[in-house]
Nucleic acid binder design. Sequence first.
DNA 1: GCTTGACTCATACGGTCGTATGATCATATT
DNA 2: AATATGATCATACGACCGTATGAGTCAAGC
Lengths: 203, 203
Amino acid sequence: MTSSSTRARLLAEARRLFAQAGYDGASVRRITARAGANLGAVTYHFGGKQRLYHEVLAAALAPLAERVVRAAAGPGDPLSRLGAVMRVYFAYLDEQRDLPGLILQTLAPGRSLPPPVRAAFGRILAALTGVIEEGQRVGSIVNGRPLFLTLSLLAQPIYFSLARSGLSKLTDGLTDRPEVAAELVEHALGFARRGLSPAPEVP
Amino acid sequence: MTSSSTRARLLAEARRLFAQAGYDGASVRRITARAGANLGAVTYHFGGKQRLYHEVLAAALAPLAERVVRAAAGPGDPLSRLGAVMRVYFAYLDEQRDLPGLILQTLAPGRSLPPPVRAAFGRILAALTGVIEEGQRVGSIVNGRPLFLTLSLLAQPIYFSLARSGLSKLTDGLTDRPEVAAELVEHALGFARRGLSPAPEVP
DNA sequence: GCTTGACTCATACGGTCGTATGATCATATT
DNA sequence: AATATGATCATACGACCGTATGAGTCAAGC
């Protein structure tokens, strides 16, 4: 029991530090010290730093993919299901504030993306392109590569949450006020909805 | 002359390595070795690693801000000027492939963003919100916070270029083919244009 | 021809890093 | 009671880090 509690504390502190300082910046020494564990605990419980990292990523991303897939398979027409997906995305990013910092570090070119990230994004992309193709068949979604439309849609929640930390410094904390954050979600939904809808014919 | 050539080689190799491996991952030893310079050269020419880093960032971002501001001040109605800005953005990101990796590393939460990044993005944001406010006054751009609309617009080129390295692995290099890349630019322009335009009245 | 200044060089310093090693402890099983 | 097992511990190892130091090089100016 104590063993699993040490394991859990290591996971929690590792996640906090990886998100804050990146893979290189979060040293095994700091992680174990903050978790109140011995230096060797990471090697013992996870086999090494990288394996711990992958476990942290999987724990952070798997629930997101799960919820997105469920929202994409929910009731309603394709456009409103995509709106539901975006709300799920924003909600998840809001309740897991450290997630942007976590995945941001993994996207650096030169390194290959960790398997948990690959898996989660693969599931999400597949679910969304499916919904978009369905919408294109019934004419409620504009024509074009479903993959591109999916990415344009995902760009909204991802970019906003990635930019949040940087932007709150550029805008004097504006985006941190809760009512502004809610307004931002509605804005992103509207922008994406217009972007996905077929353009009205110009006379 | 040889001195300035060493300086230039240091800048070039530092940029390559910072983009690829991040600030921590790019060691002064590797930078100087690849530049064919002595270990002490960074300290001598730039005063330290961080100053070299800032100089690299400034050299990479200042021209982008310059071109964006110029495109935003060009001729034409607001919507087409914003389209021009997006084209400039895509073109710049295409000719400076290492730029996403470079700025991505600076966005990590916990660290404050480097002054050159702050300055460039500040200029870009100011120019774009100005154009959007102008479009809102003449009714060609949907209402809402200009800042949010600016971010939604910027999300397209930035997210696509950030995601390019990761996505080319998820999509088997699809996005690397030049005609697909060109199609992607047109897609992003269309998506953003629809997102910025006022929604047609629903009867 | 000598000096001055900008530059390059080899080397040293104190730190931090991830991991390996073997001892020690607590607890459950025989 | 003795032992086996899983967990924790202090410590050591080799590697790499950014920077400082001082000696060496070499062309330009007097």
